[in-house]
Computed example of a mutant assay.
Amino acid sequence: MWRLLENESFSQAGLQRRYRQAEQLLLWEKAGWTKSDLSLMTNKALQSSDFLIGSQAFMDLWQSLYALKEPRQLLQIVLAMAEMPKELSGSKGEVQEILAKFSPNLSPDSSFWKEFAGLVQVTFLGERLSAKGDLEKRLHQFRYVISCQQAQWVRDYYKKRGMTDAQALAKYFKLKKRKTWYRRAYDFDLSESARLHNKLAFHEGEIIHPDNQEGANLKIVMGFHTEFILDHQGRFLNEIDPELRLQNGIINGASFNYASKNDHRHRQLDISPVSRHDPQFRKTVLKQGFLAPKLVPRPILKKAPSDWQTSYFNKQGFYAQTGLSKYKAVKQAAKAFKELIANA
């Protein structure tokens, strides 16, 4: 490491600077960057704040090496820098420690997220992300970390005293373009299906709502990769959260998508790995019988007698509320959020 810094002046002050710089470079090397990689950073006066995912120093190195290093190596480096555990516990303390590894400058619409997802796509072809493995498990659970980081970023930058998470998100979206029928380019989309984020449980004829609260959960996506889930009270729903741990969040929370759109790759990368790689604390809650409504648009299309009763589209079914199907209730929530953006 000293060889990388041999241009530093030979004086007491120079040696001190050289020591501090070497100390910082060793952190990067420990995370998996090679000495050759780090030679690109020897002219930077590195600070401890630079050793954060999304910092300017990190992004400079990332952009220089993104197309040159093996995708798997880059994925492992990011997980190492985040100090991603083998298994998330879901505790607030753990979440806070992991979030502290991200730069406050890393926004939900940063190009880094699309590039990171692209690395996962080329590394794990077919159903490989569902295979048994430490990297596979940590990467799957990292989706929950990313969504948590993105929600917390919105809180940190836009949420003022007395505001809800929904109001803060509306403030963030105020100057961004919503998907409409006349726009080919847009920043966020309120029309993506929220069916999988509205799970309920049933026990001996009783309908069980997460946190014993009835309401529709709204899904908003940015570039499909980034998603935010809001409950009927305007709270972010995430599997892990440094502020408020909700059962509804664990069950129906947001999870960053490695796929680029809702197709077979979405199932391979973001849905199939859940059963094997989900953290135990979430598996324990879901084992209480929480299930998503069925994708049965009309009674005539049901395959089993109970299918229409548990349909996303049945206004008199088990998932219905106040005379609306869950699908319509989500649409109503989307309309209310549009108004929130307009008034932000």
Rank of each mutant, 00 (worst) to 15 (best):
R138G: 02
S111V: 14
A168F: 08
D307H: 10
M222W: 03
S272K: 03
K132Y: 08
I300G: 00
H197N: 15
W2G: 01
K44H: 08
E6K: 04
A117S: 13
F290K: 04
S255K: 01
F318R: 01
L340I: 12
L4Y: 04
V95T: 15
I220H: 01
D278R: 02
S36G: 02
I207L: 04
G249L: 12
G323T: 14
K171F: 14
K302E: 15
F112S: 06
T34Y: 04
K303H: 10
D270R: 00
P242A: 15
L68E: 12
W62R: 01
S55E: 09
I53N: 01
D270V: 11
E206C: 04
Q321T: 13
R72S: 09
G215C: 07
W308P: 01
L4T: 08
G126I: 14
E239G: 03
K171R: 12
F281Y: 15
F313Y: 15
S91H: 06
Y144P: 00
K92L: 14
Y186I: 10
K331I: 12
K283E: 10
Q247H: 05
Q21W: 06
Q63H: 10
L218C: 07
P71M: 09
A131D: 15
H209T: 03
I53Y: 03
V285Y: 07
W33Q: 05
K101L: 06
F102W: 13
S147N: 06
R282T: 15
Q247S: 09
K303G: 11
E70T: 10
W28R: 02
K261A: 13
G32F: 12
F51G: 04
D156W: 06
I220K: 01
A170M: 09
D109I: 11
G249P: 03
I341Q: 05
G223F: 10
F202M: 13
A45T: 14
Y19T: 11
C148E: 11
I207F: 00
I229K: 01
H197L: 07
D307L: 06
E339Y: 02
G93S: 11
P108I: 09
A254G: 10
A185W: 07
K338V: 15
T164K: 07
A67F: 11
R235I: 08
N43M: 09
R282V: 15
E243K: 04
L295H: 10
D241Y: 09
E339V: 13
W113E: 09
W2M: 07
Y258C: 10
P273T: 13
V296C: 11
L27N: 03
T123Q: 05
L75Q: 04
I208H: 01
Q76M: 06
A170H: 05
R143K: 12
G126V: 14
V154T: 12
S89Q: 06
T180N: 01
S49W: 04
L25I: 14
P242Y: 14
L4C: 05
Y144F: 14
E115K: 05
E94L: 07
V285H: 03
S64H: 08
Q309P: 00
K44M: 11
D60Q: 12
